[in-house]
Design a protein around this nucleic acid. Structure first.
Length: 282
DNA sequence: CTCCAGGTGATGG
DNA sequence: CCATCACATGGA
């Protein structure tokens, strides 16, 4: 793959450190030279911040406009959204504090298949452990899309590829008891029984119900796939961190229905903020 | 060593 | 409907 260099300006909220730490993506990383590397499908991107919203970008010809502006959801103003959310009746002081503290995060538009496998793996794993397992899968079974000197950059493996791997070999990527879940999902997609692209035309609740039919996919994982894989911003995953803040800051009442189409986005600010303040206390 | 991690499915009330 | 429990593995 031949990469072109561009300079781009991003006026809106956009903080790469916060995005990488936000628990929605596990493959992007900061390189030793300070650049940030992203992979989506067979596309590769490097970003180097130059200050005041300016970035040096390396990616395939035309891919910034055709792939990456969509990936980063740059068509949506998160700055405007934060203002809007802060004024909603369901917003309390905790929500407003999260919008300030976590300014710069965005909901990435990632690949549905990768999100399905990633969040199946995520259950009962720490974020560093998820990152390790997903990267191991990519290194072992993902197509090589580029070489950085000695190091190869891999795409996320296809369903066809994972479905062809012996189950006990898959387990070596640290999948633990989730191995049959991952294998089953790969079989479904590889056989055509499950068409991840076609699911994109379903409405939120039908999409959610279809994902829930998969073994190893419960409501939390299904919501994550809806939000991070299909950009269904009304869907708000409730994990242990969100559960904790619902109990502590919302009297145990799930506030997300009141945020309508912004529920998933509010969830992301709150998730990051809750983790930040909990870590800060230690 | 122990404890817990962006949960889910099975089981029993 | 709700409450428990097992589940593999790695990081803290």
């Amino acid at each position: 793959m031949r990469l072109q260099q561009y300079t781009v300006h991003i006026e809106d909220d956009f903080d790469l450190d916060k995005i990488l730490a936000s628990g929605q993506c596990f493959r992007p990383e900061q390189c030793a030279d300070g650049r940030y590397r992203f992979v989506s499908g067979g596309e590769l991107l490097y970003l180097r911040p130059q200050g005041s919203g300016k970035y040096t970008v390396n990616c395939a010809q035309g891919a910034w406009e055709n792939v990456w502006t969509n990936y980063f959801d740059l068509g949506r103003s998160y700055s405007a959204l934060r203002g809007q959310i802060a004024e909603m009746p369901a917003s309390n002081a905790f929500v407003r504090a999260s919008l300030e503290s976590e300014q710069g995060i965005r909901i990435l538009r990632q690949e549905p298949w990768e999100m399905l496998i990633t969040f199946i793996i995520s259950q009962r794993k720490s974020i560093p452990a998820i990152r390790k397992a997903v990267n191991l899968l990519a290194e072992r079974y993902g197509e090589v899309i580029a070489c950085e000197g000695e190091e190869e950059v891999h795409a996320f493996p296809t369903a066809q590829r994972l479905a062809a791997v012996p189950e006990d070999e898959l387990a070596e990527c640290g999948l633990g008891y989730r191995t049959p879940y991952v294998y089953g999902a790969a079989q479904s997609v590889a056989s055509g029984a499950l068409d991840m692209a076609a699911l994109g035309s379903l409405d939120d609740s039908t999409l959610f119900a279809r994902l829930m039919q998969l073994n190893g996919v419960g409501k939390k994982v299904a919501n994550c796939v809806c939000l991070f894989g299909y950009n269904r911003t009304a869907m708000a995953p409730v994990d242990v961190w969100v559960e904790k803040l619902i109990n502590e800051e919302f009297d145990g009442q799930n506030p997300f229905p009141q945020f309508g189409q912004n529920a998933g986005i509010v969830q992301q600010y709150l998730f990051c903020y809750e983790r930040r303040i909990t870590k800060a206390k230690k």
